[in-house]
Design a binder for these strands. Structure first.
Lengths: 143, 143
DNA sequence: ATAGAATACTACTAAATCAGTAGGAATATA
DNA sequence: TATATTCCTACTGATTTAGTAGTATTCTAT
């Protein structure tokens, strides 16, 4: 059970944009270089994030991408869902109807516990929290 | 991000064996029928569980499988790991060396939180807990 | 105007994984 | 010896993943 590269790259990319919130648009190329991600692949990932309304784009020279909302207003769960899909463990957790036994399935209760445990982590943090951690990390590095 | 069918089926199968702990060996066929799982596929899954030492087998007529240890002594994390693999979110969480940036990677901290959240669920429950829930569920049904 | 910088769009692909199916070998029981 | 069961291995179609590739579109600056 792994988080896809798509989600890992996408999260790193949007964190870059969150760190640059309020500044000039940032280009795919810049993010790709910094994060060591394939330029072309990242293009597609950012397109996904954009179509979800999390970032806006500016075309042409000096263009790039900017975060669409304040980092404090973007929960990590929202980003994760866009990139990885809604299901965190098993489909029947979100959608009882996919299995007729779901109402009294014991293992489903287990998957739901795991699901909710992850969801708690993602719901209780925003991009702003990651930005702060990034800044703190950079300070440590400088000292 | 989904838990594989392998893990879901395998967990249901071992729960059947846990419910039958102390009784006669239970055959693949019986489990497969009850859980509506392909017989042949389940054979392979139980083989995985067996090679991990969680169940023992008895060949020939009246044979089948029995849980190798008391259900209370088998943590759910052990079963999950055998079926799904060690990684719950991202490899670098268990294995820092797979990425040179892991030491100051902010997103890794996030994946680790999610990882630990799930692990907490799996570490703090044993098969015995699922057996009890199963019995309770059956009682509700009878009333 | 036009060159160039950037995003936007669409199609293709190699590799891996998943969820099985299939068939027969080995072993124990009655 | 017939039968019930596990054991072992090989194959397969479908899907997903992590890209690569090429071109079209849009905006800016000169």
């Amino acid at each position: 059970m792994k988080i896809s590269t798509r989600t890992r790259y996408g999260m790193r990319a949007i964190l870059e944009l969150a760190c640059a919130y309020g500044a000039e648009p940032m280009q795919i190329k810049v993010i790709a270089d910094r994060q060591k991600i394939s330029n072309k692949y990242l293009e597609q990932l950012v397109a996904i994030i954009k179509s979800a309304g999390l970032v806006r784009s500016v075309r042409g020279p000096h263009g790039g991408y900017v975060l669409a909302r304040d980092p404090a207003e973007i929960k990590l769960s929202e980003i994760f869902t866009v990139l990885e899909g809604q299901t965190l463990t098993v489909e029947c957790v979100d959608n009882q109807e996919v299995c007729e036994n779901s109402s009294d399935c014991i293992t489903r209760k287990l998957w739901k516990q795991m699901n909710d445990a992850m969801l708690g982590v993602l719901e209780n943090q925003t991009l702003q929290d990651l930005v702060k951690m990034t800044e703190k990390e950079r300070m440590n590095y400088q000292i």
